[in-house]
Amino acid sequence: MLGFAKGLGFTLKKLTEKSVTHKYPDVPYPFPPRFRGIQHFSPEKCIVCNQCARICPTECIQLTGKSHPDPEKKGKIIDTYDINFEICILCDLCTEVCPTEAIVMTNNFELSTYSRDELFKNLKWLDDNNTNVREEN
């Protein structure tokens, strides 16, 4: 007969305990350093090896390269680079395969918009997304 009384005692004890709620969004939520947020892309590092587009499980990365404007140098430079965040699952595989760390994760994660079109991020947006960049990739 005392079973439920024990439960009542437990909840009464909890009444005065400190709440564990995070105060997000009033206070920013601190994520650990390895957190996988929205990618940052630095075009100057990219060698257009196409590995990120190939490894992407949802095929959300599209890129095109063009030949180097300086005819002396070999290789390609990046022309367009788009990530479709409607289908990106932030799985970390693109940053894992990138040999030059041109694409890296950041700790930014707020992506909500009023239109789906805005989830289609281009090279410039990804380049500008350069805060809270992850240290180890």
Partner: peptide, 10 residues
Amino acid sequence: KIIGWMQLRP
């Protein structure tokens, strides 16, 4: 409020 406090939330 009270149920919230008992459940460790505000």
